[in-house]
């Protein structure tokens, strides 16, 4: 029984080792995020693959806070592989983040937990 995927633990372990991994249906070839024990829709097996880290901002909101706290952004990013995830874009004034903007994934650590944020993609 323990041959089943343990989605959260495995995802987090990959991040801790510096890899942003997402899942792909072995039969369907379709990529998925967030991590699951079975493929959504089909219920079939999934494998881990490293995400390219490339994505585009799908939507953005800037959350205001009582000064002196700074506002911060929350975005949805469409990964190049297809899935969408919530994240934030660092390294840019939140007011300058635009829908459609190309971004690149980075793994950061806060409160002893690694997670994925994005930065504006390097100009080609």
């Amino acid at each position: 029984m323990m041959a089943e995927v343990q989605p959260d633990i495995e995802y987090q372990a990959h991040l801790a080792e510096g890899h942003f991994m997402i899942q792909r249906g072995i039969a369907s070839g379709v990529h998925h995020f967030y991590p699951r024990a079975i493929e959504p829709g089909t219920g079939r097996a999934l494998e881990w693959v490293e995400a390219s880290g490339k994505g585009k901002v799908h939507s953005v909101t800037v959350i205001s806070r009582k000064p002196p706290l700074e506002p911060y952004n929350v975005v949805l990013v469409d990964l190049a592989e297809g899935p969408r995830m919530m994240s934030r874009v660092d390294g840019i004034d939140p007011a300058a983040i635009r829908i459609g903007m190309a971004v690149t994934a980075r793994i950061v650590e806060e409160d002893e937990r690694q997670f994925v944020v994005f930065v504006p993609a390097e100009e080609a």
Partner: peptide, 26 residues
């Protein structure tokens, strides 16, 4: 069942119950 979230456990059971009838989550 260490390492699984509650939803993971339920999803695996659901997959197997559906498979008995040749069905999928869809």
């Amino acid at each position: 069942a260490p390492g699984f979230q509650s939803s993971d456990l339920a999803a695996i059971a659901a997959r197997d119950a559906l498979a008995q009838a040749g069905l999928t989550p869809a």
